[in-house]
Amino acid sequence: MKKQITVTVNGEQHTVEVETRTLLVHTIREQLRLTGTHIGCDTSSCGACTVLLDGKSIKSCTVLSIQADGKEISTVEGLAKDGLHPLQEGFKENHGLHCGFCTPGMLMRAVELLEKNPNPTEEEIRWGISGNLCRCTGYNNIVKAIQYAGAKMRGEETPSTEPEFV
Protein backbone atom coordinates (compact mmCIF):
# COMPACT_ATOMS: atom_id res chain seq x y z
CA MET A 1 0.00 0.00 0.00
CA LYS A 2 1.57 3.27 -1.12
CA LYS A 3 1.20 6.69 0.47
CA GLN A 4 2.70 10.03 -0.28
CA ILE A 5 4.55 11.78 2.50
CA THR A 6 6.22 15.13 2.80
CA VAL A 7 9.25 15.48 5.02
CA THR A 8 11.71 18.28 5.59
CA VAL A 9 15.19 16.80 5.70
CA ASN A 10 18.08 19.02 6.74
CA GLY A 11 15.92 22.00 5.86
CA GLU A 12 14.91 20.77 2.43
CA GLN A 13 11.37 19.63 1.73
CA HIS A 14 10.82 16.33 -0.07
CA THR A 15 7.64 14.62 -1.17
CA VAL A 16 8.11 10.91 -1.73
CA GLU A 17 5.92 7.89 -2.25
CA VAL A 18 6.44 5.14 0.30
CA GLU A 19 4.83 1.87 1.22
CA THR A 20 3.03 2.01 4.56
CA ARG A 21 5.64 -0.43 5.83
CA THR A 22 8.67 1.41 4.50
CA LEU A 23 11.07 2.02 7.35
CA LEU A 24 12.23 5.58 7.74
CA VAL A 25 15.87 4.55 7.43
CA HIS A 26 15.21 3.12 3.97
CA THR A 27 13.46 6.28 2.81
CA ILE A 28 16.39 8.35 4.03
CA ARG A 29 19.05 6.11 2.54
CA GLU A 30 17.49 4.81 -0.64
CA GLN A 31 14.93 7.38 -1.73
CA LEU A 32 16.63 10.53 -0.51
CA ARG A 33 20.10 9.01 -1.04
CA LEU A 34 21.42 10.26 2.26
CA THR A 35 23.57 7.26 3.02
CA GLY A 36 25.31 8.68 6.07
CA THR A 37 22.58 7.13 8.22
CA HIS A 38 23.46 3.46 8.61
CA ILE A 39 21.79 0.17 9.44
CA GLY A 40 23.57 -2.03 11.96
CA CYS A 41 20.88 -4.27 13.44
CA ASP A 42 17.25 -5.29 13.24
CA THR A 43 16.27 -4.84 16.82
CA SER A 44 16.82 -1.15 17.61
CA SER A 45 19.87 -2.21 19.60
CA CYS A 46 22.77 -0.50 17.84
CA GLY A 47 21.74 3.10 17.12
CA ALA A 48 23.64 3.39 13.81
CA CYS A 49 20.40 4.64 12.23
CA THR A 50 19.86 7.47 14.72
CA VAL A 51 18.47 10.69 13.25
CA LEU A 52 16.57 13.60 14.75
CA LEU A 53 12.82 13.60 14.22
CA ASP A 54 11.43 16.98 15.15
CA GLY A 55 14.61 17.51 17.14
CA LYS A 56 14.48 14.24 19.07
CA SER A 57 16.94 11.45 18.49
CA ILE A 58 15.21 8.30 17.31
CA LYS A 59 16.18 5.03 15.70
CA SER A 60 15.00 5.32 12.12
CA CYS A 61 15.01 1.54 11.61
CA THR A 62 12.11 1.27 14.04
CA VAL A 63 9.99 4.15 12.80
CA LEU A 64 7.75 3.97 9.74
CA SER A 65 8.28 6.57 7.06
CA ILE A 66 4.59 7.48 7.23
CA GLN A 67 5.05 8.36 10.88
CA ALA A 68 7.43 11.10 9.73
CA ASP A 69 4.88 12.68 7.40
CA GLY A 70 4.90 16.44 7.91
CA LYS A 71 7.89 16.30 10.24
CA GLU A 72 11.43 17.55 10.25
CA ILE A 73 14.34 15.17 10.03
CA SER A 74 17.99 15.97 10.63
CA THR A 75 20.70 13.61 9.49
CA VAL A 76 24.47 13.68 9.75
CA GLU A 77 24.70 15.26 6.30
CA GLY A 78 23.06 18.40 7.65
CA LEU A 79 25.28 18.77 10.69
CA ALA A 80 28.18 20.79 9.29
CA LYS A 81 27.17 24.37 8.58
CA ASP A 82 30.13 26.74 8.55
CA GLY A 83 32.81 24.10 8.76
CA LEU A 84 32.51 21.09 10.99
CA HIS A 85 29.94 21.06 13.81
CA PRO A 86 31.63 21.18 17.24
CA LEU A 87 30.72 17.52 17.69
CA GLN A 88 32.29 16.55 14.38
CA GLU A 89 35.35 18.53 15.34
CA GLY A 90 35.37 16.90 18.78
CA PHE A 91 35.27 13.43 17.27
CA LYS A 92 38.08 14.24 14.87
CA GLU A 93 40.31 15.96 17.41
CA ASN A 94 39.84 13.21 20.00
CA HIS A 95 39.93 10.19 17.70
CA GLY A 96 36.33 9.38 18.55
CA LEU A 97 35.90 7.17 15.50
CA HIS A 98 37.70 4.31 13.83
CA CYS A 99 35.68 2.64 11.08
CA GLY A 100 33.11 5.44 11.03
CA PHE A 101 30.08 3.21 10.75
CA CYS A 102 28.49 4.02 14.12
CA THR A 103 29.67 7.62 13.96
CA PRO A 104 26.70 9.34 12.27
CA GLY A 105 24.28 7.77 14.74
CA MET A 106 26.57 8.59 17.63
CA LEU A 107 26.83 12.22 16.48
CA MET A 108 23.08 12.68 16.07
CA ARG A 109 22.44 11.17 19.48
CA ALA A 110 25.07 13.49 20.99
CA VAL A 111 23.41 16.51 19.40
CA GLU A 112 20.30 15.96 21.49
CA LEU A 113 22.31 14.94 24.54
CA LEU A 114 24.21 18.24 24.57
CA GLU A 115 21.12 20.24 23.79
CA LYS A 116 19.42 18.90 26.90
CA ASN A 117 22.52 18.76 29.04
CA PRO A 118 25.17 21.22 27.83
CA ASN A 119 27.74 20.20 30.44
CA PRO A 120 27.34 16.49 31.04
CA THR A 121 29.52 14.40 33.33
CA GLU A 122 31.33 11.35 31.98
CA GLU A 123 28.68 9.17 33.63
CA GLU A 124 25.87 11.14 31.99
CA ILE A 125 27.53 10.86 28.60
CA ARG A 126 28.01 7.13 28.97
CA TRP A 127 24.34 6.62 29.86
CA GLY A 128 23.34 9.14 27.22
CA ILE A 129 24.95 7.14 24.41
CA SER A 130 23.96 3.75 25.79
CA GLY A 131 21.66 3.20 22.81
CA ASN A 132 24.58 3.43 20.39
CA LEU A 133 26.99 0.56 19.99
CA CYS A 134 30.54 1.14 18.86
CA ARG A 135 32.68 -1.89 18.23
CA CYS A 136 35.94 -0.06 17.53
CA THR A 137 36.74 2.72 19.96
CA GLY A 138 36.07 1.35 23.43
CA TYR A 139 34.10 4.58 24.01
CA ASN A 140 36.84 6.47 25.94
CA ASN A 141 37.45 8.89 23.11
CA ILE A 142 33.78 9.26 22.24
CA VAL A 143 33.23 10.50 25.79
CA LYS A 144 36.14 12.90 25.36
CA ALA A 145 34.81 14.05 22.00
CA ILE A 146 31.42 14.93 23.45
CA GLN A 147 33.04 16.73 26.38
CA TYR A 148 35.16 18.68 23.91
CA ALA A 149 32.10 19.65 21.85
CA GLY A 150 30.22 20.63 25.00
CA ALA A 151 33.04 22.96 26.05
CA LYS A 152 33.22 24.45 22.60
CA MET A 153 29.46 25.00 22.42
CA ARG A 154 29.49 26.60 25.86
CA GLY A 155 32.15 28.97 24.58
CA GLU A 156 34.77 27.57 26.94
CA GLU A 157 38.30 26.54 26.23
CA THR A 158 38.37 23.03 24.81
CA PRO A 159 40.32 20.36 26.70
CA SER A 160 43.63 19.06 25.35
CA THR A 161 43.29 16.52 22.60
CA GLU A 162 46.68 14.92 23.09
CA PRO A 163 46.34 11.28 24.11
CA GLU A 164 46.85 10.87 27.84
CA PHE A 165 49.22 8.08 28.69
CA VAL A 166 49.94 6.92 32.19
Partner: peptide, 9 residues
Amino acid sequence: IADPQVRNM
Protein backbone atom coordinates in the same frame (compact mmCIF):
# COMPACT_ATOMS: atom_id res chain seq x y z
CA ILE B 1 14.10 1.22 30.05
CA ALA B 2 15.86 0.47 26.77
CA ASP B 3 17.88 3.54 25.77
CA PRO B 4 17.44 7.28 25.20
CA GLN B 5 16.29 7.02 21.59
CA VAL B 6 13.75 4.33 22.39
CA ARG B 7 12.53 6.41 25.34
CA ASN B 8 11.97 9.34 22.97
CA MET B 9 9.39 7.20 21.18
